[in-house]
């Protein structure tokens, strides 16, 4: 039997992943719900003063988005591991990077992208001026794929371990620092009325690095966890 082409593998994997996530709507809704709940905690904890809220809004929205992505990643490979699909993926006669990349893209499309789309609404709730809401959305849009890829490296390394959750946070959160700093920084810069192009470009550069090298690292991490 000849090996399928990479394009066919890519299409089949992407369809499989999207179907799987689509059929368990909780996986899409819960990160979003988490995002909204965490952001609404800030006005309750700090004070409802608009001036103060606008000041902390960029950071609050970004920290909540980051945690939502990280928590959604904990189960990214676990189900496939329990069903044995992960072993098949790793032993298949194709480069495992391709199905892994499809998995990451599907995950981002159904968790990261909705987070970015709802971010302006939450920013508005935190009294951010309407003029910076588009910057907030673009920054989350550019930042969440990096969060997904980098977090997936941690998820791949902890897939076989029982105490995944907290260990994943300990491994991954320090790696999220650059994206957080630039992402929230862009919004703060826009809030000060300064040009944001440079910082958005840096976020894009980090995204390019993560997308090009990340799937290779994730696939390697899965191999290591499988005992290879």
């Amino acid at each position: 039997m000849s090996a399928p082409t990479l394009g066919a593998v890519w299409r089949a994997s992407l369809r499989r992943e999207l179907t799987l996530i689509w059929r368990s709507p909780a996986d899409i809704v819960q990160p979003l719900f988490f995002f909204v709940v965490v952001v609404s905690l800030f006005p309750l904890a700090l004070s409802p003063k608009p001036a103060l809220l606008a000041l902390v809004a960029p950071g609050a929205v970004w920290v909540a988005a980051l945690l939502a992505v990280m928590l959604s990643l904990d189960g990214l490979f676990r189900r496939d591991q329990e069903s044995g699909a992960l072993d098949l993926l790793l032993t298949a006669p194709v480069v495992s990077v391709v199905p892994v990349a499809a998995k990451l893209l599907a995950h981002w499309l159904l968790t990261g992208l909705p987070l970015a789309l709802i971010a302006p609404l939450l920013g508005y709730m935190l009294q951010l001026p309407v003029a910076v809401l588009d910057t907030l959305m673009v920054s989350v849009l550019l930042g969440t794929p990096t969060l997904t890829v980098v977090g997936a490296i941690g998820a791949a390394l902890t897939v076989g371990l029982n105490r995944g959750g907290i260990l994943l946070a300990v491994l991954v959160l320090p790696l999220y620092v650059p994206v957080l700093v630039f992402g929230a920084g862009v919004v703060r810069t826009a809030l000060d009325g300064l040009p944001t192009g440079g910082l958005l470009a840096v976020l894009g550069a980090i995204l390019a690095l993560a997308v090009s090298l990340g799937p290779v690292a994730v696939a390697l991490g899965l191999r290591i966890s499988a005992g290879d």
């Binding site: 941690g154 390394l157 491994l171 320090p174 790696l175 991490g221 966890s225």
Partner: peptide, 14 residues
């Protein structure tokens, strides 16, 4: 050790 190796390499870039 291999898991830590991957994390260390990613960490250096970070």
């Amino acid at each position: 050790a291999r898991a830590a190796a991957l994390l260390a390499v990613v960490g250096v870039i970070n």
